[in-house]
Design a protein around this nucleic acid. Structure first.
Lengths: 198, 198
DNA sequence: CCACTTCTGTAGTGATCGCTAATGAAATGA
DNA sequence: TCATTTCATTAGCGATCACTACAGAAGTGG
């Protein structure tokens, strides 16, 4: 198979990445189901057939938005857990950065993975995003467990409980941000949450 | 004005309270906007004109549902804070009971006030329920502050921070319940959360 | 009985939902 | 040049949205 770099046919007349970013903002702000295709095409500056040709359908577009979010605005969490020397330090940094991200005035408040499919009648879409959240909880639990096994955390550290508690706090912080809580308030919540670690 | 107990005209042929309960279940499960009037009339066993005659419109029906929820399934929180001798004991009981309520298999998971208007395009409905949540946070802060002033809480107790932290934990527990967290897991979260109190 | 009031069921309203057929426009390959 | 390929536009698909006009049914007061 020769890799044909030259493209046939009429080239796309809009910036796919820029359009995707507009879709991300809208889904982040309003959620999956409350964002209509008409809303999307208006914000993206294209007509419905262009959206369907470039992205498939609404749920596929949302899937790309979720991927983009996880690699962009949401990547801080994975980075914090991966880069800090201990699980405890990673969680502390993640919570601190979550407070900043969730209240950043440059984009919608809260976390897209947490808020965009709360009221969604599509089991596929709801289930897929829920599974991402629950996988994050399991990954955090594994990270803490590995850290305990390596002797980096004190005895009495309960990986499952700490992961579940951290998940509840993060998801609660997202909701509080959407309700208008400030960055300072959420940073205080994050700092308080760390005090339950042994 | 004489109070006419006898009703004129054709009497209503359905149980208004039972119909309201069915609407509550549906709004709790799916949220405000994702629940259609057709869904509601089917669950309530009535036709649209009966719904509109008895409840006004969809948002007014939701308003009655919210009131019913606050006086019913959601009343445990106010009761816990009012009946326990200290704010600390009240919050501990509220969190413990929240874990049980949010995972009760007899009704939808989570908290209706927290989850039913996350993705809602009506500013009136969204704002009204958000204001109820934020009023609860302020009331909790006042309760803790009064308890501190009365000398029932140790020095160093920060009413605003504790109220915000508790709100985040409760709202996070609701989300975790909708994601499938068990009662035992959430009771552990609740118990852990109480450890940040001085 | 009749007149009056209120509720119920039928059958819609216009608007919006996600999505697409058909046609013309803009690029490439030969 | 000209056929081929791909995209953009117009226009509209059937389904569903929240909501209601209308007429008949079921009660009360006289």
């Amino acid at each position: 198979m020769a890799t044909t770099t030259a493209k046939r046919g009429r080239p796309r007349s809009f910036d796919r990445e820029a359009a995707l970013e507009q879709a991300l903002r809208l889904f982040w702000e309003r959620g999956y189901e409350a964002t209509s295709v008409a809303d999307l095409t208006t914000a993206m500056g294209i007509r419905p057939p262009s959206l369907y040709a470039a992205f498939g359908d609404k749920s596929a577009l949302f899937g790309e938005v979720v991927d983009r979010y996880r690699e962009g605005h949401g990547a801080y969490a994975t980075r914090a857990l991966a880069e800090e020397p201990t699980a405890r330090a990673g969680v502390a940094r993640m919570l601190r950065e979550a407070a900043a991200m969730a209240t950043d005035p440059d984009h919608p408040w809260g976390c897209l993975l947490i808020s965009s499919t709360v009221n969604c009648t599509s089991p596929e879409v709801t289930g897929a995003v829920r599974e991402l959240r629950n996988a994050n909880v399991r990954a955090l639990e594994s990270l803490i467990r590995a850290d305990v096994a390596a002797g980096h955390e004190p005895a009495g550290t309960d990986p499952a409980a700490l992961a579940q508690f951290t998940a509840a706090v993060v998801q609660g912080m997202s909701q509080r941000a959407r309700d208008g809580a400030t960055r300072a308030e959420l940073e205080r919540v994050a700092a308080d949450a760390m005090r339950i670690w042994p």
